[in-house]
Amino acid sequence: MALSLPYYYGHSGEQYAFFRIPKLLITDSRFDGVSSDAKLLYGLLLDRMELSYRNGWVDDQNRVFIIFTVEEVMETLRCRSEKAVRLFAELDSKKGIGLIERKRQGLGKPAIIYVKNFAGDIS
């Protein structure tokens, strides 16, 4: 059964906040093997980067980092831990395509995540 929803009129479409997913993730063949969910996660991580920058979360090399836990991914994407871990692995520089780099902090602290900028790396 279809929902009975109102139409958009005028500027009413501007009422929502949006996550930005770089168009290249969809159109560039280098990312053909990356799942749509991992691309969505990358967009979420980019969104978090803005907040980290405003809060001054930079390392000693002036690189902005974020903290986004598996639990936060599970809650945001409404998925199980296995899927959240797999999505991080898909994006990671060690196991996946290299769009993020995760650094463990140890002592039960969450990993620091560096979101990489691939836009200038177009061959």
Rank of each mutant, 00 (worst) to 15 (best):
E82N: 15
V73A: 15
N55F: 07
T27G: 02
P6H: 09
I21L: 08
A89C: 04
K39R: 10
L3D: 13
I21C: 07
L87I: 02
L5F: 07
S35P: 08
Q61E: 14
M74S: 08
L51Q: 10
G106C: 06
K83Q: 15
I113D: 09
V85C: 07
K103I: 05
K109Q: 12
M1V: 08
L51H: 08
F118M: 01
V64S: 14
G43Y: 06
D60T: 08
S52C: 11
S52M: 02
T69N: 12
Q15N: 10
F31S: 01
L5H: 04
L46I: 06
F88I: 08
F118S: 00
D92G: 04
K83Y: 05
V115L: 03
A89D: 14
L40Q: 09
I97Y: 01
T76M: 14
E71F: 12
G10Q: 07
S93T: 06
D47T: 04
E14M: 11
I21T: 09
R54K: 13
N62T: 07
Q105K: 15
L46A: 06
F31E: 01
V58Y: 09
Q105C: 13
I97Q: 00
F19L: 15
S36D: 11
A111D: 12
M74G: 10
G43V: 02
A89F: 02
S4W: 05
G108W: 11
L51C: 09
T76A: 13
A84N: 09
M74K: 14
I112M: 14
P6R: 13
P22G: 02
R54Q: 14
M49E: 14
D47R: 13
I67D: 04
R86A: 14
R102M: 12
G120T: 00
V34Y: 02
P22W: 00
R102A: 03
F65H: 08
F31T: 01
R78Q: 15
E14R: 12
N117Y: 01
Y53N: 10
T76H: 11
G10C: 05
Y114N: 04
K95H: 11
S36N: 11
A38E: 03
Q15I: 13
I97P: 04
S12H: 09
K23S: 03
G120W: 00
F65C: 07
E101K: 05
K39F: 03
F31W: 01
